[in-house]
Amino acid sequence: MTRTTPHDHPLADPRPLYRQVADQLLGELHDGSVPPGERLPGERRMAEHFGVSRETVRQALDVLRRDGMLSTDRRGSHVALPGSPAGSPAPLAFPVGTLADEPRTGARATVAWEAPPAEHAVALGLAPGRPTLVHRYRSPSAGTGGRRSAVTSFSAVALAEVEELARYRDRADDSAAAQLRRTYDWMRRAGLALHHRDTITRPTDTASVRVVRRVHDQYARPLEITDLLVDTRQDALVYEFTLPPAG
């Protein structure tokens, strides 16, 4: 963000100062200064950026929140504008193979801090029984009766390198909803190149397809493994692959 000072010409603009800040911040968000879904800087930093008090920033954020431009949870305020900033690659949704038009009725995603499946532990280089962040996704397919379910385990490297993932540890009780759809974008912003390897098999005597996705970074360090089961009676599988690190 380039520093701005909305109070330099107080007589030229009849709008309240907090509204000026809200409008300027919204303009910067439309320009892609903070990508959709990402967290805004703290109030103190934004107060310095706009040259106003933290209370004025707080009022400006309230305006954008009421207008549906921001969403707020325990981790802070996040940009709720649709789409991606111009010139940025389309984000690869997590977990692999989930339906693009989420949220949908019946879909649920949670995280737990627990020992992963044995196959996942081996792939991630984790000692048997060592806990990590495990993400579970379950969704019915619209109008077909088919279902998709995915279990993802993250490596110690992913949790150490990606701040947004690490924050989930303290509330990973496998009950609260946890939408991690921007996980791959978070990884890229942490400077990680993402290399995906998918293994697709069809379990015997079923109408399902199993997809095992392994993701590692540019140093061949494992980041995550996802085990996806898809009822394929009518659904199609759509894939996108390697993305470079951000910046």
Score class of each variant (00 low, 15 high):
Val151Phe: 07
Ser153Trp: 09
Pro128Cys: 02
Thr144Trp: 05
Tyr137Ser: 00
His135Asp: 00
Ala93Asp: 12
Tyr137Gly: 00
Glu164Phe: 07
Gly143Ile: 05
Leu92Tyr: 08
Arg108Ala: 12
Ala107Met: 12
Ser153Pro: 11
Val151Glu: 14
Pro128Asn: 02
Ala107Tyr: 03
Ala112His: 09
Arg148Phe: 02
Ser149Phe: 10
Gly145Asn: 02
Pro140Lys: 02
Pro140Val: 04
Ala118Val: 14
Ala100Gly: 12
His135Gln: 03
His120Asn: 05
Leu165Ser: 09
Pro131Cys: 01
Val134Pro: 10
Gly106His: 11
Glu161Phe: 00
Ala127Cys: 00
Ser149Asn: 12
Pro103Arg: 06
Gly145Val: 01
Thr110Asp: 07
Val111Gly: 11
Arg130Ile: 00
Phe94Asp: 00
Pro140Thr: 00
Ala115Pro: 15
Thr110Tyr: 05
Arg104Gly: 14
Gly146Val: 03
Val96Leu: 12
Pro140Asp: 02
Pro116Thr: 04
Gly129Lys: 00
Gly129Ser: 04
Ala112Glu: 14
Gly97Pro: 04
Glu102Val: 10
Glu119His: 09
Pro140Ser: 01
Phe94Lys: 00
Ser139Gly: 01
Thr152Tyr: 02
Ala123Gln: 07
Leu99Ala: 12
Leu159Pro: 05
Tyr137Glu: 00
Arg138Ala: 14
Arg136Phe: 11
Pro103His: 04
Glu102Asp: 09
Thr98Tyr: 02
Ala142Phe: 06
Pro116Ala: 13
Gly129Ala: 04
Ala109Glu: 10
Leu165Ala: 10
Val151Ile: 14
Val151Arg: 07
Val111Asn: 11
Thr144Asn: 03
Val157Glu: 13
Leu165Met: 09
Ala166Glu: 07
Pro116Ser: 01
Arg130Ser: 12
Ala118Thr: 14
Leu133Phe: 13
Ala107Arg: 06
Glu119Arg: 09
Glu161Val: 09
Gly145Ala: 06
Leu159Asn: 12
Tyr137Phe: 15
Arg108His: 09
Glu119Lys: 05
Leu124Trp: 03
Thr152Met: 08
Glu119Met: 01
Leu92Glu: 10
Ala118Pro: 02
Ala107Thr: 10
Val134Ile: 13
Phe154His: 13
Gly146Asp: 07
Thr132Ile: 08
